[in-house]
Protein backbone atom coordinates (compact mmCIF):
# COMPACT_ATOMS: atom_id res chain seq x y z
CA UNK A 1 0.00 0.00 0.00
CA UNK A 2 2.64 2.49 1.14
CA UNK A 3 6.29 1.78 0.43
CA UNK A 4 8.80 4.34 1.64
CA UNK A 5 12.37 3.47 0.81
CA UNK A 6 15.59 5.17 1.94
CA UNK A 7 13.81 8.50 2.12
CA UNK A 8 16.01 11.57 2.57
CA UNK A 9 14.42 15.01 3.04
CA UNK A 10 16.44 18.17 3.60
CA UNK A 11 15.46 21.70 4.57
CA UNK A 12 18.40 23.60 3.10
CA UNK A 13 21.41 22.04 4.77
CA UNK A 14 19.46 20.50 7.65
CA UNK A 15 18.60 16.83 7.19
CA UNK A 16 15.10 16.11 8.52
CA UNK A 17 14.88 12.51 7.33
CA UNK A 18 17.98 10.43 6.77
CA UNK A 19 17.33 7.15 4.92
CA UNK A 20 13.95 6.21 6.36
CA UNK A 21 12.13 3.09 5.14
CA UNK A 22 8.59 2.18 6.11
CA UNK A 23 5.87 -0.11 4.74
CA UNK A 24 2.15 -0.10 5.39
CA UNK A 25 0.22 -3.02 3.90
CA UNK A 26 -3.43 -2.83 2.87
CA UNK A 27 -5.74 -2.85 5.87
CA UNK A 28 -2.89 -2.50 8.35
CA UNK A 29 -2.65 -0.04 11.24
CA UNK A 30 0.88 1.19 11.74
CA UNK A 31 2.16 3.71 14.27
CA UNK A 32 5.03 6.09 13.67
CA UNK A 33 6.25 7.35 17.01
CA UNK A 34 9.09 9.55 18.14
CA UNK A 35 9.84 12.70 20.10
CA UNK A 36 9.55 16.29 18.93
CA UNK A 37 11.81 17.03 16.00
CA UNK A 38 12.24 13.36 15.08
CA UNK A 39 10.99 14.09 11.56
CA UNK A 40 7.47 12.74 11.91
CA UNK A 41 5.71 15.70 10.36
CA UNK A 42 8.27 15.84 7.55
CA UNK A 43 7.45 12.21 6.87
CA UNK A 44 3.72 12.95 6.77
CA UNK A 45 4.08 15.91 4.46
CA UNK A 46 6.33 13.95 2.11
CA UNK A 47 3.87 11.06 1.93
CA UNK A 48 1.07 13.56 1.26
CA UNK A 49 3.12 14.97 -1.61
CA UNK A 50 3.48 18.41 -0.01
CA UNK A 51 7.28 18.06 0.28
CA UNK A 52 9.73 16.76 -2.31
CA UNK A 53 12.23 14.10 -1.21
CA UNK A 54 15.94 14.76 -1.83
CA UNK A 55 16.56 11.04 -2.30
CA UNK A 56 14.73 7.75 -1.93
CA UNK A 57 11.17 7.02 -2.94
CA UNK A 58 7.58 7.09 -1.75
CA UNK A 59 5.35 4.65 -3.60
CA UNK A 60 1.60 4.61 -3.00
CA UNK A 61 -0.95 2.13 -4.24
CA UNK A 62 -4.39 3.68 -3.93
CA UNK A 63 -5.56 6.96 -2.49
CA UNK A 64 -4.11 8.62 0.56
CA UNK A 65 -5.78 11.26 2.71
CA UNK A 66 -4.28 13.29 5.50
CA UNK A 67 -5.51 14.40 8.91
CA UNK A 68 -2.96 17.15 9.47
CA UNK A 69 -1.40 18.34 12.70
CA UNK A 70 -3.45 21.15 14.23
CA UNK A 71 -6.61 20.01 12.40
CA UNK A 72 -6.34 22.76 9.76
CA UNK A 73 -10.01 23.64 9.47
CA UNK A 74 -11.51 26.11 7.04
CA UNK A 75 -12.52 28.13 10.11
CA UNK A 76 -15.12 30.47 8.63
CA UNK A 77 -16.90 27.71 6.72
CA UNK A 78 -19.49 25.28 8.05
CA UNK A 79 -18.67 21.71 9.06
CA UNK A 80 -20.71 20.55 6.07
CA UNK A 81 -18.62 22.66 3.68
CA UNK A 82 -15.39 21.49 5.32
CA UNK A 83 -16.45 17.89 4.78
CA UNK A 84 -17.57 18.45 1.19
CA UNK A 85 -14.26 20.06 0.31
CA UNK A 86 -12.52 16.98 1.70
CA UNK A 87 -13.94 15.11 -1.28
CA UNK A 88 -12.74 17.72 -3.79
CA UNK A 89 -10.09 15.48 -5.35
CA UNK A 90 -12.68 12.86 -6.31
CA UNK A 91 -15.64 15.29 -6.53
CA UNK A 92 -17.40 13.47 -3.72
CA UNK A 93 -20.04 15.67 -2.07
CA UNK A 94 -22.11 12.92 -0.50
CA UNK A 95 -21.83 13.08 3.28
CA UNK A 96 -23.91 9.98 4.04
CA UNK A 97 -21.02 7.55 4.23
CA UNK A 98 -18.96 9.72 6.57
CA UNK A 99 -21.92 10.65 8.79
CA UNK A 100 -22.67 6.96 9.06
CA UNK A 101 -19.18 6.37 10.45
CA UNK A 102 -18.97 9.56 12.53
CA UNK A 103 -22.61 10.19 13.53
CA UNK A 104 -21.64 12.97 15.94
CA UNK A 105 -20.85 15.19 12.96
CA UNK A 106 -24.51 15.17 11.93
CA UNK A 107 -25.59 17.61 14.63
CA UNK A 108 -22.61 19.89 13.93
CA UNK A 109 -23.25 20.23 10.19
CA UNK A 110 -24.36 23.84 10.21
CA UNK A 111 -21.81 25.08 12.77
CA UNK A 112 -18.75 27.12 11.75
CA UNK A 113 -15.71 24.84 12.01
CA UNK A 114 -13.64 27.57 13.70
CA UNK A 115 -16.11 27.70 16.60
CA UNK A 116 -15.89 24.01 17.52
CA UNK A 117 -13.91 22.46 20.37
CA UNK A 118 -10.58 20.77 19.63
CA UNK A 119 -12.07 17.30 19.82
CA UNK A 120 -14.94 18.22 17.51
CA UNK A 121 -12.50 19.78 15.05
CA UNK A 122 -10.37 16.64 15.11
CA UNK A 123 -13.45 14.61 14.26
CA UNK A 124 -14.20 16.99 11.36
CA UNK A 125 -10.61 16.61 10.20
CA UNK A 126 -10.95 12.82 10.21
CA UNK A 127 -14.31 13.06 8.44
CA UNK A 128 -12.91 15.46 5.87
CA UNK A 129 -10.06 13.06 5.09
CA UNK A 130 -12.53 10.17 4.76
CA UNK A 131 -14.53 12.12 2.16
CA UNK A 132 -11.69 11.38 -0.28
CA UNK A 133 -12.46 7.64 0.24
CA UNK A 134 -8.82 6.88 1.06
CA UNK A 135 -7.21 3.46 1.06
CA UNK A 136 -4.67 4.85 3.49
CA UNK A 137 -5.44 7.41 6.17
CA UNK A 138 -2.41 9.28 7.51
CA UNK A 139 -3.04 10.95 10.86
CA UNK A 140 -0.58 13.47 12.23
CA UNK A 141 -0.88 13.80 16.01
CA UNK A 142 -4.36 12.53 16.77
CA UNK A 143 -4.11 13.25 20.49
CA UNK A 144 -2.37 16.64 20.48
CA UNK A 145 -4.09 19.02 22.87
CA UNK A 146 -7.12 16.78 23.42
CA UNK A 147 -8.60 15.35 26.59
CA UNK A 148 -7.93 11.59 27.09
CA UNK A 149 -11.64 10.76 26.94
CA UNK A 150 -11.97 12.49 23.55
CA UNK A 151 -8.86 10.71 22.27
CA UNK A 152 -10.27 7.31 23.33
CA UNK A 153 -13.46 8.03 21.43
CA UNK A 154 -11.52 9.01 18.30
CA UNK A 155 -9.38 5.89 18.61
CA UNK A 156 -12.54 3.76 18.72
CA UNK A 157 -13.71 5.40 15.51
CA UNK A 158 -10.40 4.57 13.86
CA UNK A 159 -10.61 0.91 14.88
CA UNK A 160 -14.15 0.75 13.55
CA UNK A 161 -13.10 2.37 10.28
CA UNK A 162 -10.27 -0.11 9.91
CA UNK A 163 -12.46 -3.08 10.72
CA UNK A 164 -15.48 -2.14 8.60
CA UNK A 165 -13.85 -0.50 5.59
CA UNK A 166 -10.41 -2.07 5.66
CA UNK A 167 -8.85 1.37 5.48
CA UNK A 168 -5.15 1.25 6.32
CA UNK A 169 -4.01 3.76 8.94
CA UNK A 170 -0.63 5.34 9.54
CA UNK A 171 -0.86 6.99 12.94
CA UNK A 172 1.87 9.47 13.67
CA UNK A 173 1.95 10.10 17.40
CA UNK A 174 4.00 11.49 20.23
CA UNK A 175 1.78 9.64 22.67
CA UNK A 176 3.36 6.18 22.57
CA UNK A 177 0.74 4.51 24.78
CA UNK A 178 -2.09 5.50 22.44
CA UNK A 179 -0.12 4.60 19.30
CA UNK A 180 0.78 1.12 20.54
CA UNK A 181 -2.75 0.57 21.79
CA UNK A 182 -4.40 1.38 18.44
CA UNK A 183 -1.84 -0.02 16.02
CA UNK A 184 -0.53 -3.54 15.63
CA UNK A 185 2.84 -2.50 14.27
CA UNK A 186 5.06 0.49 15.01
CA UNK A 187 8.16 2.29 13.87
CA UNK A 188 10.24 4.49 16.17
CA UNK A 189 11.79 7.56 14.61
CA UNK A 190 14.53 9.59 16.27
CA UNK A 191 16.58 12.41 14.79
CA UNK A 192 15.51 11.54 11.24
CA UNK A 193 16.28 7.79 11.45
CA UNK A 194 14.27 4.67 12.21
CA UNK A 195 15.75 3.38 15.48
CA UNK A 196 13.35 0.48 15.99
CA UNK A 197 10.40 -1.25 14.38
CA UNK A 198 8.26 -4.28 15.15
CA UNK A 199 4.89 -5.21 16.57
CA UNK A 200 3.53 -2.88 19.20
CA UNK A 201 3.70 -5.55 21.90
CA UNK A 202 7.38 -6.20 21.11
CA UNK A 203 8.23 -2.54 21.29
CA UNK A 204 6.15 -1.52 24.29
CA UNK A 205 8.33 -0.60 27.22
CA UNK A 206 11.62 -1.37 25.50
CA UNK A 207 14.83 0.54 26.07
CA UNK A 208 15.01 1.92 22.55
CA UNK A 209 11.61 3.64 22.79
CA UNK A 210 12.52 5.12 26.14
CA UNK A 211 15.84 6.36 24.85
CA UNK A 212 14.25 8.00 21.80
CA UNK A 213 12.14 10.08 24.15
CA UNK A 214 14.44 10.69 27.08
CA UNK A 215 17.92 10.39 25.56
CA UNK A 216 20.57 8.61 27.62
CA UNK A 217 19.17 9.71 30.93
CA UNK A 218 19.17 7.09 33.64
CA UNK A 219 15.96 5.12 33.94
CA UNK A 220 13.80 6.10 36.90
CA UNK A 221 14.12 2.59 38.36
CA UNK A 222 17.93 2.77 38.11
CA UNK A 223 18.08 5.91 40.16
CA UNK A 224 18.55 5.67 43.86
CA UNK A 225 15.11 6.88 44.66
CA UNK A 226 15.77 6.90 48.38
CA UNK A 227 18.07 9.87 47.98
CA UNK A 228 15.77 11.77 45.69
CA UNK A 229 12.38 13.29 46.17
CA UNK A 230 9.85 13.21 43.32
CA UNK A 231 10.60 16.77 42.26
CA UNK A 232 14.21 15.88 41.53
CA UNK A 233 13.12 12.87 39.55
CA UNK A 234 10.75 14.88 37.42
CA UNK A 235 13.61 17.28 36.82
CA UNK A 236 15.78 14.46 35.46
CA UNK A 237 13.06 13.13 33.21
CA UNK A 238 12.41 16.53 31.82
Amino acid sequence: MLHVEDLVVRYGSAVALDGVSLQVEAGEMVALVGPNGAGKSTMVNTIAGLLKPSAGSVRLEGRVALVPEGRQMFPDMTVEDNLKLGGWSIRNRDLAEVLDLLPDLGSLRRRKAGRLSGGQQQMVAVGRALMARPDLLVIDELSLGLAPLVVDELADHLRLLNRERGTAVLLVEQEVGLAFDVCTRACVLDAGRVVASGTSSELAGTEVVRRAYFGDLPRPEDLNTEDMNTEDMEEVIR
Binding site: L50, L66, P68, F74, L85
Partner: peptide
Protein backbone atom coordinates in the same frame (compact mmCIF):
# COMPACT_ATOMS: atom_id res chain seq x y z
CA UNK B 1 -2.47 24.73 3.37
CA UNK B 2 -5.64 22.75 4.02
CA UNK B 3 -6.92 23.64 0.55
CA UNK B 4 -3.80 22.16 -1.05
CA UNK B 5 -4.09 19.17 1.22
CA UNK B 6 -7.59 18.27 0.02
CA UNK B 7 -6.42 18.63 -3.56
CA UNK B 8 -7.56 22.15 -4.42
Amino acid sequence: FAARMVGI
